[in-house]
Design a protein around this nucleic acid. Sequence first.
RNA 1: AGGGGUGUGGCCAAGCGGUAAGGCACCGGAUUUUGAUUCCGGCAUCCCCAGGUUCGAAUCCUGGCACCCCUGCCA
Length: 558
Amino acid sequence: MSTEQTTTTTNFLRTIVSDDLASGKHQSVVTRFPPEPNGYLHIGHAKSIFLNFGLARDFGGRCHLRFDDTNPVKEEAEYIESIKESVRWLGFNWGEHLYHASEYFEQLYQWAEHLIRQGKAYVDDLSPEQIKEYRGTLTEPGKESPFRNRSFEENLDQFQRMRAGEFPDGAKVLRAKIDMASPNMNLRDPVMYRILHAVHPHVGDTWCIYPMYDFTHGQSDAIEGITHSICTLEFESHRPLYEWFLENLPVPAKPRQYEFARLNLSYTVMSKRKLQELVNTDLVNGWDDPRMPTIMGLKRRGFTSAAIRTFCERIGVGRSDAWIGYELLEECVRNDLNENAIRAMAVLHPVKLVIDNYEEDKTEFFEVANHPVKHELGTRKILFSREVMIDADDFMEHPSKGFHRLTVGGEVKLKYAFVIKCTGMVKDEHGRIIELHADYDPGSTNGPVTSDGRKIKGVIHWVSASDAATVEVRLFDRLFSDPNPDRGGADYRQFLNPESLKTLLNCRVEPALLDAVPGQSFQFERLGYFCADEKDSQPGKPVFNRVVTLRDTWGAKN
RNA sequence: AGGGGUGUGGCCAAGCGGUAAGGCACCGGAUUUUGAUUCCGGCAUCCCCAGGUUCGAAUCCUGGCACCCCUGCCA
């Protein structure tokens, strides 16, 4: 069972695909998800994955996973594996269609020579600084390079020698001969190839010249028969170039590029550069730190892939810059886990409560449901005894108005057990409450009602002091304290939330929780959803990550 | 006169000349051994602004305004 919606709201891309299929322009839709293996995938990529694979799935087409690996100095094999794992975990399958742009390098090279022969590409000896100078500015046209009009024979010879490794990095580039005065900067003789004596994570040292993104992407799409090449808005001004290469090359197909707005999520950063920096400077514990917006971070935190899919569905797809509140993501996991997570009781900040009128050595078991609605999830027995642990938050010496949990002289229901009345408290020399005393009402096991029929408002969770296990719980909060850490010129790191991780070493839980399997999620009643950490849990010694708290309308107002 | 985009309730988002879908948030109220869940009900006379065309416009035209992207041998 899943909470996923089966209805798919439409968007402009679905409309385009649907129209293209209806008009017969395409027999079937072929999309692709083209990550560069230079980091871990994040929630923004999930939007793209959901879009591309979702389109293919819903219109009976296919979606390729293609590594856009044209820059060996930034790419690593480790990232290739993490990307595959992320896509798979999100529930999508590329089947046989796994590709690498680097596998097209020979074809791309031949096409580059083709452009040279047509007089549409040339080898430029200008330095990077000079190229920048010659490019002009947004409001002024650029100047043509003095090498722009070499003969095609010379260009071909130069280019072949570039490939042969005769020149050092940066000595020369191959450029498309388009228009140095174009108002679109991307058309001012864009660089097609640069010299990079670097080992490539997929094709090793077979090349020392590497094609640029613009000279690779469209042709790769054409080779694979991609019908709809979907990318983010910042590539919009590259589209004329994408089309220029396809028009000037003998490619087997003419894919079309469409752009959509990338995801912006509040209270986090999404650029790979910044995520990489957080990892490298140990501001977080790796790419899969549970506070990271990476797919692997969310997974480890305890988000389910179904929740992420629901999130992607709900945020929609458009062309206007979208800012999504982090709360929506949280709401999506709550939805899934509320329906599917087994309940258990856990006390995060334990305070001992002694029930004075309960016989000293007596114990009893209560059989309770593992889920309040889905009874097919079974029941379990929990031990009750004279001493129980309750959460410090559930007692107030000086209750604020509206507080209906425990106070001295007040009554509260110990969930699934008895109504108790607090008779007193014991403080240590610092004035901290270390023990509470209470009397119980033996006839109050049936609901939050006393034996004389009075309804009790407060219901709190507890755990028997005698058999409760002690575990570590990690309370995570948003990584940044500002909704937009990227805002303004300020360094996003100044907005890091110092309280994004609180480690609690002395939490008391139902003993059965000791058998939690890594990755398993629970609802700790009245607190939130928690997941046994995949990495740090040991057999019999789980570490729990708080995925998200329960909604708390009372707490939110106080 | 650089070019390219975008502007629909707090946040997303349908709508494509016929009189403002949906989700989230929010506000009521019911149920509830989780102040959770669930459940009912409410929530834009108005679509960035100003003109114009039309019987009729968020949708067409004109002129403004705001925001985003583009000057990597990154993708």
